[in-house]
Amino acid sequence: MLLIGLIVGGTALLSWPLGRYMKWALDPQAPDAGAAGRLTRLFTAAVGAASRQPQHWKQYAVSMLVFNAAIFVVSFAFMALQQYLPLNPDGKTALEGSLIFNTAASFTSNTNLQHYSGEVAMSYLSQLCGLMWLQFVSAATGIAALAALARGLAGKPALGNFYVDVQRAAFLVLLPLALLVATLFAVGGLPMTLQGAAKVTTLEGIEQVIARGPVAAFLAIKQLGTNGGGFFGPNSTHPFENPTFWTNVISSMAIIIVPMACVWMYGRIIGRMRHAGVVFGVMMVLLLAKIGGAVSFESEPTQAFAGLAIEQDVGNLEGKELRFGTAAGPLWAVLTTSTSNGSVNAMHDSLNPLTGLMPMIGMWLNATYGGVGVGMINMFIYIVIAVFLAGMMVGRTPEYLNRRVEAREVKLAVLALLAHGFFILVGTAVFAVTPWGAATLNNTGPHGFSEILYEFSSASANNGSGFEGLGDNTVPWNLATGTVMLLARFIPIILPLAIAGSMARKRATAVTAGTLGVENLTFGVMLLGTILFLGALTFFPAATLGPIAEHLLYMAEGSGR
């Protein structure tokens, strides 16, 4: 409880001043004066003519796509050509084509789903310039998109300029935070070197090669940008990525602080901090419910150990790193999947069935703080649907922030919401009934189904964590999840930007006694109910075939695997 309170409560407190700073950085009150003005001129000069004009939602969305297509190509080239490029002391060769596509899509979309082991496949140049660079700019894309959305909802038809916003987010928010956290990590014992792998002789006289590299720098933005891609294959279970209890605490806080601060930044830009407080509260309730469920379910022993002559009252310790404490595994599993981070400090495949359901719920809802910037954008989609339902229930035209929410906005919101469920459920169904998925499983039955369901959930939520136990570095998996990651990244940004552009042009309506308040407990309960009902209606059938069926089989037979 103390650990959960320290990490969740402490980070929630720190997110308040960070949100205030992010508002200053992304949406300065006087963008042409003082320090903000000098920075704006600097960022404008860096890009040139493209950054001088304020952009309508369509121009903003197109700029975002052009920029992300460009970083996709650059990242792709680094991985395809790494054998010819410098900073390759261990002589890494080019990756297979579909794996390059998957990895470039993964890091461009802020997912960091990894079908490779970094220390085996990537040169230092690929890690730093192909991947770590994308961890900054893909996260900055999410923050920029949220700032643009908020400006539109505040009534500004020009949403800002994407090229200026993405620089503000990268250089003023993510870079300073990453420098701070990287320093803490280096002090905490993470390697930070450009020397190649260490070659040592063990006490038994065996030659051993120990991979290392610029890990502290890589890890800081991995966590802060809700990226999640590890320097090493085992991610944050690796002693060089996460050596101690304290690096685990810092990592956990780094995972959720920027998504939390994004809610406050949103509230400040739209000028409705009480509304942001209600949204923050709804997210916190859902987050704590998942943490409570995961820690509770994981306190039961794993069925794999049933009948063995070992202590059965210490909970499920399979796949855990005990140097962090027993609750740290399920806590991290929830934090990393609630925020679209995707890093892991325990083996998710080894979680008890119902514990494994909690991370999946996090990825299905994808808005309980969510990814940097995009978590709040996803919550905005739920808000549009909630105010629409509330309006229908009382027979009034739905309004949000004093502007009417009409059929077009609701259709776009529903489309964005359906896209997420479509990618997960259709992808899972296709791979569950074909050798593309079935032949790559490590487990049969409901647990095998969960592995496929988790992989598509992770791809569509731009999370990047893996249930593992899945042989996912195949051409079908690489192509399917790569395509899903790109589509599921940008569709839920484009459509809300279109809604914001549409609402910005509407006349503000007068506040009357019949106006739906969005700053009170009633709205919070309505929003919470909307999220739960929509989430359950969409994903409960799939959950029953996977983790719930596995749990019931355990109860009935003792083992479902």
């Binding site: 050509l81 579909s98 077009r408 192509l479």
Partner: peptide
């Protein structure tokens, strides 16, 4: 250079651009 996979990625971005264009055409200009 596995060019086909690079082109696939760019085709997905083109598809997303198409989505922007289609949604923009549904704007009523109210």
């Amino acid at each position: 250079m596995p060019l086909a996979y690079l082109l696939l990625g760019l085709a997905i971005f083109a598809l997303l651009y198409g989505l922007v264009a289609v949604v923009a055409r549904t704007e009523t200009g109210e």
